[in-house]
């Protein structure tokens, strides 16, 4: 019951925080466009007045891509460095904007103005950056230990059975996914708690996050695990919709853009729902949060 209540409350809170969701979506579109639009210009220049683009109407044509020659190498470098920049910018932006989001979500019926949102974002930034950095480093290390090491070991192993390595890798990924769910929970509890405090300290917040996660492990984990599965399924659905969709008219391309941005908006909303559900669960368990 506690979980359902958290879901319901989280969902309501996330809807109330729509302004925050719009800000997150807009920032994402803006930052990605900073990389994608110059890239589009470069691609356009590489193809010039060629009609070979007709070959791309049916989808990606690897021969055409390879024929780009030096331009393809430049585009690849541009894409990879752009992606690195975006991950970095996204990480910082998430640390910033999550402050506002969590602040909006802390009361179920609270509506917040944009100014308040950014004020809260700024106030929580350093603490949230610390929480995100520490949890991300832990995830990377655990990823290496839980998935990287077994995969590396298996690739050098002449096992009799081919099924065994396959199963080991699958289990590794599942274990990693489970650990990520737990660490997400820690981060969310920590951030949820942090926005209620005047004095900002990422270590104290993380302490609370770990404490709360393991004190209320079963309902918390189950709730987070289900939300993560929803997110994974949603991502697969997006891939299924956008991947094979190949509009051949200008209006179709515009529709593709609108639908893809709507889907991303929903994705941000689901993430906010996650934040809201964790906040709600925390408030249900101990509204005064005097655990630390």
């Amino acid at each position: 019951m506690k979980i359902f209540k958290a879901y319901e409350s989280g969902f309501r809170r996330s809807l109330n925080a729509w302004k925050g969701v719009v800000i997150v979506w807009f920032f994402s579109l803006l930052s990605v466009s900073l990389v994608a639009l110059p890239m589009k210009g470069a691609i356009k220049a590489a193809f010039g007045k060629s009609m070979v683009t007709d070959k791309l109407m049916g989808g990606l044509d690897v021969e055409v891509l390879v024929d780009l020659g030096a331009s393809l190498r430049i585009l690849t470098h541009f894409f990879s460095s752009g992606l690195f920049f975006l991950i970095l910018a996204g990480f910082l932006a998430n640390s910033f904007l999550a402050g506002g989001l969590f602040d909006t979500l802390k009361k179920s019926d609270n509506r917040i103005s944009a100014a308040e949102f950014f004020r809260a974002s700024a106030g929580n930034f350093w603490s949230f950056l610390g929480i995100s950095s520490i949890i991300s480093i832990i995830i990377i290390i655990i990823g290496f230990l839980v998935v990287g090491l077994p995969a590396g070991f298996i690739s050098n192993l002449h096992a009799d059975s081919e099924k065994t390595p396959y199963i080991i890798v699958l289990i590794s990924i599942l274990v990693f996914f489970t650990i990520v769910a737990i660490l997400n929970l820690v981060a969310d509890y920590a951030r949820s708690w942090q926005v209620t405090k005047e004095k900002k300290s990422c270590f104290k917040a993380l302490g609370f996050g770990f404490n709360r996660t393991f004190r209320t492990f079963f309902p918390s984990f189950l709730m987070m695990f289900i939300i993560m599965i929803v997110l994974v399924l949603f991502n697969l659905l997006v891939l299924k919709i956008l991947g094979p969709w190949r509009p051949v008219t200008g209006a179709g391309v515009l529709l593709l853009f609108i639908v893809s941005q709507l889907l991303f908006f929903v994705k941000v909303l689901i993430k906010t729902w996650r934040y809201g559900s964790v906040t709600s669960l925390m408030e249900q368990s101990n509204p005064d949060d005097n655990l630390v």
């Binding site: 579109l29 990605v32 466009s33 994608a36 639009l37 890239m39 589009k40 691609i43 356009k44 193809f47 683009t53 007709d54 791309l56 109407m57 894409f79 997006v238 956008l242 190949r246 509009p247 051949v248 008219t249 200008g250 179709g252 391309v253 593709l256 853009f257 893809s260 941005q261 889907l263 991303f264």
Partner: peptide
């Protein structure tokens, strides 16, 4: 059109 479509997908 293919380039615009490609860019949209890259953005997403």
């Amino acid at each position: 059109i293919p380039l615009r479509r490609f860019t949209n997908k890259i953005i997403s």
